[in-house]
């Protein structure tokens, strides 16, 4: 079998990355550090971060788990926009200029690209993100495809915090529930099997609830799962005005 075609080589290029570094044990100030790496067109920003960590600077710190856009650990701000490092191909960015990578905004930075996610999770916990149903059916609770479709979009959330930390209201008002918590409330408010929609609507009808939203659409643009976040928030607002889902 000599006529097997050789697999074409994947084109490679050198790319400059400027990464926001912060180490509280060394300095109180964060600073930019530049790296140059040889990357392939099939590589993602996460691969570049790995390459830097493994080959150039082992002190670079960032979160990642599944590395395939499912776990939501590696949300970072790339070229000023919140994205998942594992879902952003380097070739899709402008490789002729330096690519900036910094931690997501509005949450306290712990080290380099790692932020304290606790305030984010607290807002999520506050909306009771679990099904509340008091009946005890013999079998599973049935739901029509139409009823399931009602909240399908908001089931896609992976809690990466890309939306909440792209929200200008959240940047200055850390008490605001934020888009992600509202999206996850939406997922239960519009679930026909759930019985506590009114409680959740009441929780979000707060000074720091849905009314803080100013429909800037940053969250919708930032969502790596393509959830129509601003639309979900608007639906929750309407449900509060109606007094029911």
């Amino acid at each position: 079998m000599s006529d097997v075609k050789e697999i074409a080589e994947i084109p490679s290029f050198t790319v400059k990355l400027s990464i926001r570094r912060f180490d509280p044990e060394k300095s109180e100030e964060a600073s930019w550090q530049e790296y140059e790496v040889e990357m392939h067109a099939t590589d993602r920003v996460l691969d570049a971060l790995h390459k830097i960590k493994w080959e150039q600077d082992g002190s670079l710190t960032f979160r990642r788990s599944c590395a395939h856009g499912v776990c939501g650990s590696d949300a970072v701000r790339i070229n000023g926009r919140n994205r998942l490092a594992c879902k952003t191909l380097i070739k899709d960015l402008d490789i002729n200029s330096t690519i900036t990578v910094e931690p997501i905004k509005g949450l306290p930075v712990e080290k380099d690209l790692i932020v304290d996610m606790n305030p984010f999770y607290q807002a999520y916990k506050d909306i009771n993100p679990f099904l509340v149903a008091n009946d005890k059916p013999e079998k599973e609770r049935l739901q029509s495809p139409e009823d399931r479709a009602r909240y399908d979009d908001t089931t896609k959330c992976i809690l990466c915090a890309a939306c909440t930390t792209s929200c200008p209201v959240f940047w200055t008002d850390g008490q605001y529930f934020g888009p992600a918590a509202i999206v996850n409330a939406h997922r239960f408010i519009f679930d026909s099997r759930d019985e506590e929609a009114d409680v959740r609507l009441d929780i979000l009808n707060d000074k720091e609830g849905v009314w803080r939203c100013r429909t800037t659409f940053n969250c919708t643009e930032a969502c790596p799962r393509g959830i129509e976040v601003t639309k979900a928030i608007a639906e929750v607002k309407q449900a509060i005005l109606r007094g029911r889902p």
Binding site: I203, N205, D206, G209, I240
Partner: peptide, 8 residues
């Protein structure tokens, strides 16, 4: 929940 919610 506050008594009156002026935000709404």
């Amino acid at each position: 929940q506050r008594v009156t919610n002026w935000e709404k």
